[in-house]
């Protein structure tokens, strides 16, 4: 463990808590993409299967349970409890265009052709594009509530910090995982446009408005 990965995990946890709290407190999921949340649920489910088989550390196991629980809770709130507030009209990204290529790529490019490893690889590829429905929805509605933009910022920063973690691990442990790194770069780059808007607008107290 290193400071970059710890801060990254904390930022990731913060993002998930911010979102869950926003939906729960406002009793509404307006402006939130349920499709992205479904994809995140799929990412954690396919990646954390080893929760039962391999024990790495208490921290690792606890965080996996928290991420899975928070993800399922968010999906439950969006699609069951507060589904009347779910914005179908703006959450229209075709997620099959993300899932199918991720499956294909995981079968083609992986470290080991075993079920758990293929699922892990699929989760890495899918996570790199899972935010697209949410970013697409923000661009369609043309704006995002500030709490939603804080959520997106924390979520984008988490994988950015993981990039620093991978640089550190390459230098300090001579260990690197090219699949995770390439997907992590793609994932972080997708947020760049949002990062720019967040820094220049939201941090100045303005609403996040995308140029129409």
């Amino acid at each position: 463990m290193n400071i970059f990965r710890l801060l990254g995990d904390i930022s990731h946890l913060l993002a998930i808590i911010i979102l869950l709290r926003k939906i729960w407190m406002s009793r509404s999921c307006a402006g939130i993409s349920g499709k992205s949340q479904l994809l995140f649920g799929l990412v954690y489910t396919t990646r954390y299967l080893d929760l039962i088989t391999s024990y790495i550390s208490l921290y690792n196991s606890v965080m996996k349970v928290v991420f899975l629980a928070a993800s399922y809770a968010t999906i439950y709130l969006m699609y069951v409890k507060f589904k009347a507030t779910y914005d179908h009209n703006h959450d229209t990204f075709r997620i099959e265009f993300l899932v199918v290529p991720a499956v294909a790529l995981a079968l083609l490019i992986n470290h080991d052709f075993q079920v758990v490893e293929i699922l892990w690889t699929f989760s890495i590829y899918l996570e790199s594009v899972a935010i697209l429905p949410q970013l697409f929805m923000v661009s369609k509605t043309g704006e995002a509530e500030s709490i939603t933009s804080h959520y997106l910022f924390a979520l984008g920063v988490y994988r950015g910090l993981y990039l620093l973690n991978w640089i550190y691990r390459f230098w300090a442990e001579d260990h690197y995982d090219l699949i995770a790194i390439v997907a992590g770069v793609v994932q972080t780059v997708l947020y760049c446009d949002f990062f720019y808007l967040y820094i220049t607008k939201v941090l100045r107290g303005k609403k996040l408005q995308l140029p129409a």
Binding site: R5, R47, S54, N60, M63, K64, F67, H175, D177, L178
Partner: peptide, 10 residues
């Protein structure tokens, strides 16, 4: 590169 035997990251 020492390929990750197990994935120790979240």
């Amino acid at each position: 590169s020492t390929l990750p035997k197990i994935h120790d990251e979240l």
